[in-house]
Design a protein around this nucleic acid. Structure first.
Lengths: 203, 203
DNA sequence: GACTTTCTGTAGCGCTGGCTACAGAAACAC
DNA sequence: GTGTTTCTGTAGCCAGCGCTACAGAAAGTC
């Protein structure tokens, strides 16, 4: 009882079209990318885009969601997979240095850069991305608090300040990558940034 | 022989209009700010704006120039005024924490945020700001090399990596300030960030 | 006063933005 | 085949963009 899909089939691959949209939004941001830019890159016409993805906002949100599951997944992965928190944060920064300068896609992080210049009409898009960044800082803090409770960080460690510090380093690395910093430079920065790690509470 | 100015005098103050333009571009970026936004905030009509400032690009460049001489001047000032380089960079980061969260103007740094989302038409604006940021990194590096040659930094110090690190911290602090980080949090981050300072070459 | 110069708002230019009405094309069901 | 469903491109809507032609207003010059 397999119900075959009716009607004329789609003439393009939805996933590759989504990937092309990701690339454009990543490079130029939400407002800097027009529907004409998108349809041109996808090789389709506006009605096909709207039928497949809804409007520009919905498409963008789907792009962000996809990004979080692929390119942006390395952060939480590094923190979750490493049992030692110091090793986890070190790995996260080092992988960020590589990811943000990977020549196979635009530089930096989409969530950080795609909606920094927002007009009144796109304030909601900006708010969405900012909320994602704030959630990231909170997940840093949670990981650090967990480390403190397990004794691998001193009992009086300012986990909030540490979490904001790591967010600062990650976001700054994204910016520097967009400004042309090399993978080599950013890996050195990642290494340097880790030397602030406080000594464990040995008392 | 004082030649008085002929014609109808300007009905608004050019400097305060420039300040209002600065505020808008600072908040929403170059593309996120329209001529209508500007004329509305200034309380004038388009022809007055164009007569006084040229086109939108020229106005923006004048805003950036003014910004560099006022809000953005604290960085080079801190590095130049402090004879000890460590004290200079520490002061720069601490003052950045305060400046970027000052409630009397938009959060973060205009040069860092005003043109991150650029379309093809505004690529030259983006290039201008990026060049300013790169010049900043170079001035960090120059200051660090100077410190090394004077012996206050070890002879094998990687001044390039240090310079990029400080740029990362400054740009990351700007982003975090825009995301809602407080002055208190960022000052702790500034303090934390300085603990990477390498020991001086005592050999 | 008449004349010149400069600033002023109204109104609107050309263009591009996001988005869609419409009719044709290509698949399935029967 | 006919009918139904879904995707397709053309062509164009309307709103907003940066920018300006124009005529009137307000100052100095003589």
């Amino acid at each position: 009882m397999t119900t075959t899909k009716r009607g004329r089939p789609r003439g393009f691959d939805r996933d590759t079209a989504l990937a092309q949209a990701t690339s454009l939004f990543w490079q130029h941001g939400f407002e800097g990318t027009s529907i004409a830019d998108l349809t041109s890159a996808m090789g389709i016409s506006p009605p096909s885009l709207y039928a497949a993805f809804g409007d520009k906002r919905t498409l963008f949100l789907e792009v962000v969601e996809r990004y979080g599951g692929t390119f942006g997944a390395f952060m939480n992965k590094a923190l979750a997979e490493e049992s030692d928190p110091r090793t986890g944060f070190a790995r996260m920064l080092d992988e960020a240095a590589l990811a943000y300068t990977d020549p196979s896609h635009p530089a930096g992080c989409l969530v950080i850069t795609a909606a920094t210049n927002y007009s009144a009409q796109t304030a909601d898009i900006e708010r969405d991305l900012r909320e994602r960044r704030r959630a990231n800082v909170r997940s840093f803090e949670t990981r650090l608090e967990d480390a403190r409770s397990r004794g691998s960080l001193g009992r009086d460690t300012d986990t909030r300040a540490l979490a904001v510090y790591f967010a600062v380093v990650v976001q700054g690395m994204s910016q520097q990558a967009r400004d042309g910093a090399t993978a080599r430079e950013l890996r050195r920065v990642a290494e340097l940034a880790m030397t602030i790690w406080p000594p464990s509470d040995a008392s």
